[in-house]
Amino acid sequence: MSVDTSEVRRIAHLSRLAMNDDQARDFAGGLSDIFAFVEQLDGAAIEGVEPMAHPLDAEQRLRPDAVTEPDRRDAYQAIAPAVEGGLYLVPRVIE
């Protein structure tokens, strides 16, 4: 399968990656090669095979519903790009 520049831009948007036309053109060849490469899977004998999500087929472990983590809000907010009054700041969303 091959992807063109507009398809690359569509995937970039879904991926939340800013990308101009020149950059999209640069990615198109590599992405087309990768999609062509993974098409080898089409020949696999997988009729009736159960998909494998975990190497040991482990079940999700559950724990008691109890508080185990301390409040470290200050430490976590100290490394944020912009905070004010205990809140993370982003550009205005609602006018």
């Binding site: 993974v38 899977l41 095979v49 998909p51 494998m52 999500a53």
Partner: peptide
């Protein structure tokens, strides 16, 4: 899904 099945084989 196909890749996850191939993973199993």
């Amino acid at each position: 899904l196909k890749a996850q099945k191939v993973r199993r084989i």
